[in-house]
Amino acid sequence: MDLPGPIHDFLLVFLGLGLILGGIGVVLLNNPIYSAFSLGLVLVSISLLYILSNSYFVAAAQLLIYVGAINVLIIFAVMFMNGSEYYKDFNLWTVGNGFTLLICTSIFGLLITTITDISWYGIIWTTRLNQIIEHDLISNSQQIGIHLSTDFFLPFEFISIILLAALIGAITVARQ
């Protein structure tokens, strides 16, 4: 990204703030529909962060799949539950919450230690070199396509089988 430093930092802080506030909103808001909408905020901020780091194809895919499809699905589901008055009698603090808290804290600690351990300079230089080599020939998303259909041929086909299984499973569950 070649934005002037301060603007870049400002955007980074702003998007990070959106991300954190949205995440807190998802967990803490009482109305599940508000939670679902703030999940949308989180996903949009993540996608904008991808754009900020120049991986725009991933950003567009994030917007299309997570915001456009999965978040809409979640909102539908929550609205559906909302009508049936299912959620209204739940305790504020259950065993599951404590368990989740434990897992999340441990993942957070693990990430922090990993981030401080990695030598980022090495990674930056190798990726920069690769970018310079590959950038002249073809665009970013073209590279994704080429890798997808040569090196990752089998995973590519497995994805379609997984999608098929997901479709069949979802239909079977929803029909009951």
């Binding site: 529909i33 909408f37 949308g40 949009v44 725009y56 194809f57 950003a59 567009a60 895919a61 917007l63 299309l64 915001v67 456009g68 499809a69 978040n71 809409v72 909102i75 609205m79 665009s139 970013n140 998303s141 073209q142």
Partner: peptide, 25 residues
């Protein structure tokens, strides 16, 4: 002039239903 131009259009326009759901709710 992004090299994912039209794809970006489709991705961004897929946010619109969330706004409509929001105002409907």
């Amino acid at each position: 002039d992004l090299n994912i131009g039209v794809f970006l259009w489709i991705a961004i326009s897929s946010i619109a239903p969330i706004g409509l759901l929001m105002s409907g709710y």
